[in-house]
Amino acid sequence: MKDKIMHGLKSIGIPRLTIITLLIVIYIAAYVLKLDVAQLFSDNLVRMGMNGVLVLAMVPGILAGTGLNFGLPLGVICGIIGGLISIELNLTGLFGFVVAIVASIPLSILTGYYYGKLLNRVKGSEMMVGTYVGFSVVSLMCIAWLVMPFKSDAIRWPIGEGLRTTIALTDYYDKVLNDFMKFRVAGIDVPTGLLLFFFFMCFIVFLFLKSKTGLAMIATGSNNKFAKASGINVDKSRMIATVVSTILGAIGILVYAQSYGFFQLYTAPLMMGFAAVAAILLGGASAHNAKIFHVIFGVFIFQGLLLAALPVANVIFPQGNLSEIMRVVVQYGIILYALTKAGGGQ
């Protein structure tokens, strides 16, 4: 019996146990401090849904052996451009959202293709190169946002040149997924549409991973010499993974934005990759292996921690600045912890 428990604990992994414990402790603290736990949990579900697809974007890269996709901002930017096109066309509601996705996909494919080409040239240091590709492209886009030929008043600054730093979606497709079939149970708001969309995307990726192409990708990531000997085109597999990851990044930011209510331009996409990396690592993935379960579980606990830790810290440290500092410490602390413990349970 004792062995079985030990085995069970081992299979979850110490890092996971630590984080789960921490999350539970924070929720208990929130209850003790008389915070609205039901509301916290509702927000937790929303956060999970809105970040989920971005985290899912990590899976193809990890499985194909290009590692964690720190170049996620590339996909994010493609998604934002798709979203802006939809606004420019003055489309609203679910239709506007779908057009945003459709518009972003060709862009993501193109971007993913060139990004994949680059990654194929720097085998072995994809994560490092990806990080800096993300940084450079975000910076480059800071110029591009200023000169893009969008005409809509919702997108441009009312005076001067260039696009706004934040673009409100209130009149377009704000919360189209969140509010779809939304219901309330035991004080908890369940964003049905958002969660359904997230699980649907997970399912699509799951199917993809069980296809011939997906399995070729997994073989490539698992052992590229084996893949080569099995007649698999290693570079092509990695390329496909990068393209898929970029597309998921684009869809991910659109899901995120519709829930958040704004597009954030300029330097905002910079750190998008890090939060997604942290979430999937916390979920139990490593730089070489990831499952869909890691995505769902990881994004739930990571976002839960970030979300719940802030109000709790706010109450414990009433000085305004301190809680903000705490939040940053907690966020990057978790990322660091997740990266160092990435090897954890199986």
Binding site: K212, L215, A216, A219, K225, F226, A229, S230, G231
Partner: peptide, 27 residues
């Protein structure tokens, strides 16, 4: 059947059944 069993011959982190089938699947 490669001389380098672990390096070329196997997907060490994948199950036996997938190892056996994957090449025939791809080819």
């Amino acid at each position: 059947v490669s001389e380098d069993r672990k390096g070329v011959g196997l997907l060490l982190d994948e199950p036996i059944d997938l190892n056996i089938a994957i090449t025939a699947m791809q080819v």
